[in-house]
Amino acid sequence: MTRVHDMGGRYGDGPVRPEPQGVPAFAADWHPRALALTVAAGGLGKWNIDMARHAREALAPRDYNRFAYYEKWIAALADMLVSEGLVSRAELTDGQGAAPGPEGPAAGPVTVQKVRQMIANGAPADRAASAPARFVPGDRVRTRRPAANLFVDGGHTRLPQYAAGAEGRVLRVHGSHVLPDRSAHKLGEGAEPLYAVAFAASALWARPEHPRDEVVLDLWQSYLEAV
Protein backbone atom coordinates (compact mmCIF):
# COMPACT_ATOMS: atom_id res chain seq x y z
CA MET A 1 0.00 0.00 0.00
CA THR A 2 1.08 3.59 -0.36
CA ARG A 3 1.22 6.50 2.05
CA VAL A 4 -0.66 9.33 3.72
CA HIS A 5 -0.26 11.68 0.74
CA ASP A 6 -2.27 9.30 -1.47
CA MET A 7 -5.65 10.83 -0.61
CA GLY A 8 -7.59 10.80 -3.90
CA GLY A 9 -11.19 9.77 -3.23
CA ARG A 10 -10.90 10.01 0.55
CA TYR A 11 -13.95 11.04 2.61
CA GLY A 12 -14.18 13.51 5.46
CA ASP A 13 -12.12 16.52 4.40
CA GLY A 14 -14.97 19.01 4.31
CA PRO A 15 -15.63 21.76 1.78
CA VAL A 16 -13.12 23.37 -0.58
CA ARG A 17 -12.71 27.06 0.24
CA PRO A 18 -12.21 29.22 -2.87
CA GLU A 19 -9.90 32.23 -2.74
CA PRO A 20 -9.65 35.49 -4.70
CA GLN A 21 -8.40 35.23 -8.31
CA GLY A 22 -4.96 36.34 -9.43
CA VAL A 23 -1.60 35.64 -7.85
CA PRO A 24 -2.23 33.91 -4.50
CA ALA A 25 -1.28 35.85 -1.41
CA PHE A 26 1.11 34.17 1.02
CA ALA A 27 -0.66 33.49 4.32
CA ALA A 28 2.45 34.17 6.45
CA ASP A 29 5.84 35.80 5.95
CA TRP A 30 7.66 32.50 6.32
CA HIS A 31 5.73 30.87 3.47
CA PRO A 32 7.60 32.63 0.63
CA ARG A 33 10.89 32.05 2.47
CA ALA A 34 10.08 28.32 2.71
CA LEU A 35 9.19 28.20 -0.99
CA ALA A 36 12.37 30.05 -1.97
CA LEU A 37 14.63 27.92 0.24
CA THR A 38 13.21 24.72 -1.20
CA VAL A 39 13.48 25.87 -4.81
CA ALA A 40 16.99 27.24 -4.27
CA ALA A 41 18.22 24.12 -2.48
CA GLY A 42 17.13 22.08 -5.49
CA GLY A 43 19.86 23.98 -7.32
CA LEU A 44 22.49 22.28 -5.15
CA GLY A 45 22.05 19.33 -7.50
CA LYS A 46 21.83 16.65 -4.82
CA TRP A 47 18.29 15.49 -5.53
CA ASN A 48 15.68 15.38 -8.27
CA ILE A 49 11.96 16.12 -8.12
CA ASP A 50 11.08 12.49 -7.44
CA MET A 51 13.39 12.34 -4.43
CA ALA A 52 11.93 15.62 -3.17
CA ARG A 53 8.35 14.35 -3.51
CA HIS A 54 9.26 11.13 -1.77
CA ALA A 55 10.88 13.02 1.10
CA ARG A 56 7.54 14.83 1.70
CA GLU A 57 5.54 11.63 1.38
CA ALA A 58 7.86 9.83 3.80
CA LEU A 59 7.01 12.22 6.63
CA ALA A 60 5.31 10.40 9.47
CA PRO A 61 1.54 10.51 8.89
CA ARG A 62 1.04 12.47 12.11
CA ASP A 63 3.49 15.11 10.83
CA TYR A 64 2.09 15.12 7.29
CA ASN A 65 -1.39 15.70 8.67
CA ARG A 66 -0.56 18.41 11.20
CA PHE A 67 1.97 20.32 9.07
CA ALA A 68 0.81 23.17 6.85
CA TYR A 69 1.80 22.88 3.20
CA TYR A 70 5.11 24.72 3.41
CA GLU A 71 5.94 23.04 6.72
CA LYS A 72 5.96 19.75 4.81
CA TRP A 73 8.38 21.30 2.33
CA ILE A 74 10.70 22.56 5.05
CA ALA A 75 10.67 19.29 6.99
CA ALA A 76 11.44 17.30 3.84
CA LEU A 77 14.17 19.79 2.91
CA ALA A 78 15.83 19.38 6.31
CA ASP A 79 15.65 15.59 5.99
CA MET A 80 17.20 15.65 2.50
CA LEU A 81 19.97 18.07 3.49
CA VAL A 82 21.02 15.61 6.18
CA SER A 83 20.57 12.43 4.12
CA GLU A 84 22.62 13.94 1.27
CA GLY A 85 25.37 15.03 3.64
CA LEU A 86 25.06 18.79 3.12
CA VAL A 87 24.00 19.67 6.67
CA SER A 88 24.76 17.80 9.88
CA ARG A 89 22.36 16.93 12.67
CA ALA A 90 24.40 19.12 14.99
CA GLU A 91 23.90 22.08 12.66
CA LEU A 92 20.13 21.52 12.58
CA THR A 93 20.13 21.35 16.36
CA ASP A 94 22.05 24.56 16.94
CA GLY A 95 20.55 26.38 13.94
CA GLN A 96 23.83 27.90 12.82
CA GLY A 97 26.17 26.13 10.41
CA ALA A 98 29.89 26.53 9.92
CA ALA A 99 31.27 28.94 7.33
CA PRO A 100 33.02 27.11 4.47
CA GLY A 101 36.78 26.66 4.58
CA PRO A 102 39.19 27.72 1.83
CA GLU A 103 37.99 24.85 -0.36
CA GLY A 104 34.60 26.60 -0.63
CA PRO A 105 31.07 25.31 0.04
CA ALA A 106 30.24 21.61 -0.33
CA ALA A 107 27.85 22.41 -3.20
CA GLY A 108 26.59 25.44 -5.03
CA PRO A 109 26.64 28.24 -4.23
CA VAL A 110 23.14 28.81 -5.57
CA THR A 111 23.29 32.32 -6.98
CA VAL A 112 20.73 34.70 -8.51
CA GLN A 113 21.99 33.66 -11.93
CA LYS A 114 21.57 29.99 -11.04
CA VAL A 115 17.96 30.37 -9.89
CA ARG A 116 17.11 32.36 -13.02
CA GLN A 117 18.42 29.46 -15.10
CA MET A 118 16.55 26.90 -13.00
CA ILE A 119 13.25 28.72 -13.34
CA ALA A 120 13.74 29.39 -17.07
CA ASN A 121 15.01 25.95 -18.06
CA GLY A 122 13.10 23.66 -15.71
CA ALA A 123 14.00 19.99 -15.69
CA PRO A 124 12.34 18.17 -18.60
CA ALA A 125 11.37 14.58 -17.79
CA ASP A 126 11.11 13.27 -21.35
CA ARG A 127 13.83 11.00 -22.65
CA ALA A 128 14.65 9.12 -25.84
CA ALA A 129 12.46 6.02 -26.05
CA SER A 130 14.14 3.13 -24.25
CA ALA A 131 11.32 0.68 -24.87
CA PRO A 132 8.72 0.53 -27.63
CA ALA A 133 5.27 1.87 -26.75
CA ARG A 134 3.00 -1.15 -26.21
CA PHE A 135 -0.22 0.82 -26.39
CA VAL A 136 -1.89 3.27 -28.74
CA PRO A 137 -4.83 5.60 -28.12
CA GLY A 138 -8.03 3.62 -27.81
CA ASP A 139 -6.41 0.51 -26.27
CA ARG A 140 -8.03 -0.95 -23.17
CA VAL A 141 -5.63 -1.30 -20.25
CA ARG A 142 -5.75 -2.28 -16.58
CA THR A 143 -3.59 -0.73 -13.86
CA ARG A 144 -1.53 -2.88 -11.60
CA ARG A 145 -2.80 -3.72 -8.12
CA PRO A 146 -1.81 -3.02 -5.41
CA ALA A 147 -0.34 0.41 -6.14
CA ALA A 148 3.21 -0.07 -4.92
CA ASN A 149 6.82 0.54 -5.80
CA LEU A 150 8.26 -2.70 -7.24
CA PHE A 151 11.86 -1.89 -6.32
CA VAL A 152 11.76 -0.55 -2.75
CA ASP A 153 9.32 -1.62 -0.04
CA GLY A 154 7.33 1.49 0.85
CA GLY A 155 8.96 3.38 -2.01
CA HIS A 156 7.67 6.15 -4.23
CA THR A 157 5.10 5.52 -6.93
CA ARG A 158 2.74 7.72 -8.92
CA LEU A 159 -0.05 5.19 -9.23
CA PRO A 160 -2.68 6.34 -6.72
CA GLN A 161 -4.50 3.68 -4.72
CA TYR A 162 -7.88 4.78 -6.00
CA ALA A 163 -6.88 3.85 -9.56
CA ALA A 164 -5.17 0.53 -8.77
CA GLY A 165 -6.66 -2.48 -10.55
CA ALA A 166 -8.98 -0.32 -12.66
CA GLU A 167 -9.71 -0.72 -16.34
CA GLY A 168 -9.50 2.30 -18.63
CA ARG A 169 -8.57 3.33 -22.15
CA VAL A 170 -5.49 5.06 -23.47
CA LEU A 171 -6.23 8.64 -24.52
CA ARG A 172 -2.80 9.83 -25.58
CA VAL A 173 0.87 8.91 -25.58
CA HIS A 174 3.20 11.50 -24.02
CA GLY A 175 6.47 9.93 -25.20
CA SER A 176 8.97 8.36 -22.79
CA HIS A 177 9.40 9.90 -19.33
CA VAL A 178 11.67 9.23 -16.35
CA LEU A 179 10.11 6.56 -14.10
CA PRO A 180 9.63 8.10 -10.62
CA ASP A 181 9.61 4.68 -8.96
CA ARG A 182 13.30 4.34 -9.87
CA SER A 183 14.37 7.98 -9.94
CA ALA A 184 13.17 8.68 -6.38
CA HIS A 185 15.53 6.00 -5.05
CA LYS A 186 18.63 6.68 -7.17
CA LEU A 187 17.96 3.55 -9.21
CA GLY A 188 18.48 5.30 -12.54
CA GLU A 189 15.92 7.02 -14.72
CA GLY A 190 14.39 3.91 -16.33
CA ALA A 191 12.40 6.05 -18.79
CA GLU A 192 9.24 4.38 -20.07
CA PRO A 193 6.39 5.33 -22.36
CA LEU A 194 3.89 7.49 -20.47
CA TYR A 195 0.19 7.50 -21.28
CA ALA A 196 -2.85 9.56 -20.37
CA VAL A 197 -5.41 6.89 -19.44
CA ALA A 198 -9.11 7.68 -19.02
CA PHE A 199 -11.25 5.81 -16.49
CA ALA A 200 -15.02 5.97 -16.28
CA ALA A 201 -15.99 7.40 -12.89
CA SER A 202 -18.05 4.23 -12.47
CA ALA A 203 -14.83 2.15 -12.71
CA LEU A 204 -13.39 4.01 -9.71
CA TRP A 205 -16.23 5.00 -7.40
CA ALA A 206 -19.17 3.27 -5.78
CA ARG A 207 -21.48 6.22 -6.46
CA PRO A 208 -20.28 8.19 -9.48
CA GLU A 209 -21.93 11.57 -9.89
CA HIS A 210 -22.70 11.19 -13.60
CA PRO A 211 -22.62 8.25 -16.04
CA ARG A 212 -20.30 10.00 -18.51
CA ASP A 213 -17.79 11.53 -16.09
CA GLU A 214 -14.19 10.39 -16.34
CA VAL A 215 -10.89 10.70 -14.49
CA VAL A 216 -7.66 10.80 -16.50
CA LEU A 217 -4.29 9.86 -15.00
CA ASP A 218 -0.80 9.92 -16.50
CA LEU A 219 0.57 6.40 -16.07
CA TRP A 220 3.81 4.71 -17.03
CA GLN A 221 3.86 1.59 -19.20
CA SER A 222 4.93 -0.70 -16.35
CA TYR A 223 1.84 0.39 -14.37
CA LEU A 224 -0.37 -1.04 -17.12
CA GLU A 225 -1.34 -4.36 -18.65
CA ALA A 226 -3.37 -5.02 -21.76
CA VAL A 227 -7.00 -6.05 -21.24
Binding site: W30, A36, G95, G97, G108, P109, V110, T111, V112
Partner: peptide, 21 residues
Amino acid sequence: RVKALETILTRKGLIEPAALD
Protein backbone atom coordinates in the same frame (compact mmCIF):
# COMPACT_ATOMS: atom_id res chain seq x y z
CA ARG B 1 12.34 26.41 11.42
CA VAL B 2 12.53 28.32 8.15
CA LYS B 3 14.74 30.97 9.71
CA ALA B 4 17.11 28.31 11.10
CA LEU B 5 17.42 26.54 7.76
CA GLU B 6 17.99 29.84 5.95
CA THR B 7 20.72 30.75 8.44
CA ILE B 8 22.41 27.36 8.10
CA LEU B 9 22.32 27.29 4.30
CA THR B 10 23.53 30.84 3.83
CA ARG B 11 26.25 30.62 6.53
CA LYS B 12 27.58 27.46 4.94
CA GLY B 13 27.81 29.30 1.64
CA LEU B 14 25.41 26.91 -0.09
CA ILE B 15 22.81 29.54 -1.04
CA GLU B 16 23.24 33.26 -1.61
CA PRO B 17 20.55 35.29 0.20
CA ALA B 18 19.82 37.30 -2.97
CA ALA B 19 18.89 34.05 -4.75
CA LEU B 20 15.99 33.63 -2.31
CA ASP B 21 14.71 37.14 -2.98
